[in-house]
Design a protein around this nucleic acid. Structure first.
Length: 579
DNA sequence: GCCGTTTTCGGCCCGACTGTTTTCAGTCG
């Protein structure tokens, strides 16, 4: 089964190779635009092809590309790409990933020196053969060599949560310079993407040169990549790249908009401007006579196009512009909307703290309820203790509930979904619990059909309240499993099973796209911390980020409901599943 | 190769930085 991402990869590779070849740049762009549509439109292209849908009705996909998509889906190949690949060594595209090498230089490196891989490149740079080439010099050769070495060890993106403290510290540092006015970390960081490649910072300053000097003398800087009057790039000691852009107050909104992206969102806005004969750049929106129409604030820019303000988390060109024009933007979930946390661990299982400490933390966070959900295997086997703590766990939770007025403590448990789809514990064993989290564990490598069947069977249990991390992925670690999530979501919606977005920074499962898919399938979601300590309960904000990127509103998320509403809903859903 | 509320031809997002063959191509975001 081919994913949209895989289909899009055909066109990206086609574009890259044609660019090295020196083909018509507009055809190359057309392939890239099509790849973007395939990745971001939200349709399942395999399904569209199978159902005979006319793909050329989609933006940036014409008759010829539609035919190519059909070829890819039905044969798994694209003849044009196969032919093109034969003209180059397989490693040539790796050259493009090196800082300072684009298609033109890659072509020269290949044609003049026969360089077709990063290893070739490194060797040639070390032997000083690159500096001899026309258009290259000693400096560029050094830069390339450094790029190759660097690429091998990192080339990775940072988790949002990893980048966050660096962003905050940098903001603090920039604030020390008196000429600097506004400071915003824009880019994918501001869009709260689960990973960020670099930090794009936009500032205003009465004295840009001084601001740039201040920036480049930040003590966490390892290397200054470039430094100009209005723009500078540095690399921090932890290899995080920072791009700083300085603009005037009257351009601040336009620059913020431009550097917040996403790229597809910006391109879509520019196309809207073009249709009106206007121009959008990082300084503002201008009419034909270069008269400034907007730019001081982002609100002003969106208003000019007849749209409501679009929250950064939504700016992915996934329908937000149309929704904004029609006044149909979601009112996004906020951290303050949460009234409880429904998935976390205490010292009876893998957590560090007692249930009591977790309840205290919940109360201090302003929550009205909490479900402690230690894992079944920790509760039902001795694990080096004298005996299994299940009874003691239940008793303690009951005692705590009695002792806590104005607070609801749900007796929860997390059970693994076994390979055949049955649960780790029997229905009888699960009976005393108010809330049961079913979590997908190994094996992760089942076929899509078997994996889907497995989870559907788990959802047929009347006890299951929440389905946790159904994508089974670890960001930067393990790919998502193969499973028909659309079907899972529809079933969960019918059976009153909640779907989880967890807040572990390297999981955030469901992700943004699938959270939205779940919402559209009519399912209710929950945002959970999966905390193993009282402090970690605060990490739930990362889950909120993901939920917002998934267009979720308060009404879509169960743990925003009041104490009495959630209690009622739990028993109503249970009755629904027992039918 | 796509697209069209002046167009089926002739456009296609736009600007900064680097290095320098001191005017612009190449790269990047």
């Amino acid at each position: 089964m081919m994913s949209n991402k895989e289909i899009a990869a055909f066109f990206k590779e086609l574009a890259d190779l044609l660019e090295i070849k020196g083909d018509n740049p507009f055809r190359i762009r057309a392939y890239r635009n099509a790849a973007r549509t395939i990745e971001t439109s939200g349709y399942d292209f395999v399904k569209l092809v199978r159902e005979g849908y006319d793909l050329s009705r989609l933006p940036d996909i014409g008759e010829r590309i539609a035919k190519k998509i059909a070829e890819i889906v039905t044969t798994g190949h694209l003849q044009k790409l196969d032919d093109l690949r034969k003209e180059f060594p397989p490693g040539i595209l790796d050259l493009l990933k090196i800082e300072g090498i684009g298609p033109k230089r890659a072509k020269i490196l290949y044609e003049k020196l026969g360089i077709g891989s990063l290893d070739d490149l490194k060797k040639a740079a070390k032997e000083h053969r690159i500096r001899e080439l026309a258009g290259f010099d000693e400096k560029l050769e050094e830069k390339i060599l450094k790029g190759v070495v660097l690429y091998k060890k990192e080339g990775k993106r940072f988790l949002f949560a990893e980048a966050e403290p660096y962003a905050r510290k940098l903001e603090e540092y920039l604030r020390e310079e008196p000429s600097i006015g506004q400071i915003t970390v824009a880019g994918s960081f501001r869009r709260r993407k689960e990973t960020v490649g670099d930090l794009d910072v936009v500032i205003t300053s009465a004295d840009p040169l001084r601001a740039m000097d201040h920036f480049s003398s930040y003590d966490a800087v390892k290397e200054i990549v470039s430094k100009g009057d209005t723009r500078s790039t540095v690399i921090l000691k932890n290899n995080l790249q920072i791009d700083l852009r300085c603009v005037s107050e009257q351009s601040y909104g336009a620059a913020l908009h431009y550097f917040t992206g996403s790229k597809p969102h910006n391109i879509a806005v520019r196309k809207m401007a073009m249709a009106k004969g206007w121009k959008v750049n990082e300084y503002g929106v201008f009419d034909e006579g270069m008269q400034r129409l907007a730019g001081r604030t982002e609100e002003e820019i969106y208003r000019l196009f007849g749209m409501a303000y679009i929250e950064p988390e939504l700016r992915e060109d996934r329908g937000e512009l149309q929704a904004a024009a029609e006044g149909k933007l979601p009112k996004l979930l906020r951290l303050e909307d949460l009234k409880g946390d429904l998935h976390l661990y205490s010292s009876y299982g893998s957590g560090k703290e007692t249930p009591e400490a977790l309840v205290r933390q919940a109360q201090s966070l302003g929550y009205d309820y909490l479900a402690i959900t230690d894992r079944a295997d920790h509760l039902t086997s001795a694990h080096g203790r004298e005996k299994a703590p299940l009874d003691a766990y239940l008793k303690e939770l009951e005692r705590l509930q009695k002792a806590s007025s104005d607070f609801l403590l749900l007796k929860g448990i997390e059970v693994a979904i076994l390979e055949d789809g049955s649960l780790e514990l029997t229905e009888e064993q699960l009976a005393p619990f108010d809330l049961v989290v079913a979590s997908l564990e190994e094996p992760f490598d089942l076929s899509q059909k078997d994996q889907t069947k497995r989870v559907l069977k788990a959802l047929s249990s009347p006890s299951v309240t929440i389905l946790a991390h159904p994508m089974g992925r670890i960001i930067g670690g393990r790919n998502r499993i193969s499973i028909d999530l659309q079907r899972i979501f529809e079933t969960a919606a019918t059976r009153g099973v909640w779907l989880e977005i967890d807040a572990r920074p390297d999981r955030l499962d469901l992700d943004d796209v699938h959270a939205r898919m779940a919402k559209e399938a009519g399912a209710t979601l929950v945002v959970s911390s999966l905390a193993e300590s009282a402090e970690a309960m605060k990490q739930i904000r990362y889950g909120i980020n993901q939920a917002r990127r998934g267009w979720l509103e308060k009404a879509n998320v169960a743990n925003t409901f009041t104490r009495s509403a959630i209690k009622k809903l739990l028993s109503k859903n249970r009755r629904k599943r027992e039918k």
